[in-house]
Nucleic acid binder design. Sequence first.
DNA 1: TATTCCGATAGTGAC
DNA 2: GTCACTATCGGAATGAG
Lengths: 218, 218
Amino acid sequence: MGLGAYLTNPGSFPSSQVIYHNDDFVLINDLFPKATVHTLLLPRSKKFSLMHPFDAMEDQGFREKVVAEAAAARQLVAKELQRRLGPHSRSDARREAVLNGDAGPDPSGSLPAGRDWLAEIRVGFHAQPSMSHLHVHIFSRDMHSDRLKHRKHYNSFNTPFLVPLEDFPLADEDERRGRKSGWLSGGMRCWRCGRVWEKSFVGLKEHLDEEFEDWKRQ
Amino acid sequence: MGLGAYLTNPGSFPSSQVIYHNDDFVLINDLFPKATVHTLLLPRSKKFSLMHPFDAMEDQGFREKVVAEAAAARQLVAKELQRRLGPHSRSDARREAVLNGDAGPDPSGSLPAGRDWLAEIRVGFHAQPSMSHLHVHIFSRDMHSDRLKHRKHYNSFNTPFLVPLEDFPLADEDERRGRKSGWLSGGMRCWRCGRVWEKSFVGLKEHLDEEFEDWKRQ
DNA sequence: TATTCCGATAGTGAC
DNA sequence: GTCACTATCGGAATGAG
């Protein structure tokens, strides 16, 4: 990938690439997004950014900084998802209509809650990053993207290969520490309905299209 | 393939498809030639044309007819190969020049023999025809064709899977009677130089192009 | 488990 | 081993100042 350039010179990139940066972190849009919104949070610490994430996250100070920054970034990503998909969402439409005075409140008399976009955002590390600098994936869970091209793409985000940030620190005996799992080559389970495709990636893709249409209208 | 139509109504096809026919045989150009010249000799006998070739060829009367007709057809195929490639052949050029009076005889004083085109023609059955009616392949041995597209194409003509007509009748214990050989999926050996490609069909194809250029100039 | 290109491999559907 | 189409699977190159 060459994520290093983002760390050393984040200000040189357009806002379409670098979402924000500060002394300790850079948040970028993944160049090959595997979901509607897909960002990478890059810690700038030279000490940790070349370590395996499981090792780096053993350090309590580092871990706490990452967790805090990721929580903030996750809010931004949720906002972006709302910006992109809100116009399609029934929950948001009712709330917006009431707020705008275009409609009355719910039969119960309460303001519609609006969609919980934050709940649609996932945050975690890949168990075996192939290259480049340490990065946290922060992404909408839909997996609806032209860049999602094969089984390993999908399974890297929808099996234990994706380790949620909240799971750190990992227990010593955590199975995800093992480097030889078959998660990436196994069947593909739909994140939304649980159906499994053992072989047909194209079949999964068609299904993800359908799920996406329904999900975004929630 | 649908070879049946050639048997019942050979006269209805243009000469580009049906080369000749008589009461007992039809000679056609293979619709998907795997060599510069590639024809199929089809016996019209209803009794034998739906049998496995090994079984049909057990019948002495049938076998002798097929062998005789194939020998004649082979002559035609050799002539066609000469027509197509003769202009590129050094052996033929010298002979033709002498015959035309455009050149003197060889240093030895003899007429150049001209190329033995018949020796370039192969005749045989596939050990496991996949479909259609019984047919003898009569083809130039170059395997130079855009229709030669994968390993099984090549190996079906360049392993014991291709059973020369002269080998009939087969001995009872002939290994080619077995239906589970791995000939088609094994390495590909160049018919001319003997080099073997274990995996790369594209590599073989490039080599066959080179061999063809040299072979046709012989 | 970076992408992209190429090619080898596998299954199907055709009539 | 009929073809033609699609898709899956597998290796290799990739940039660089």
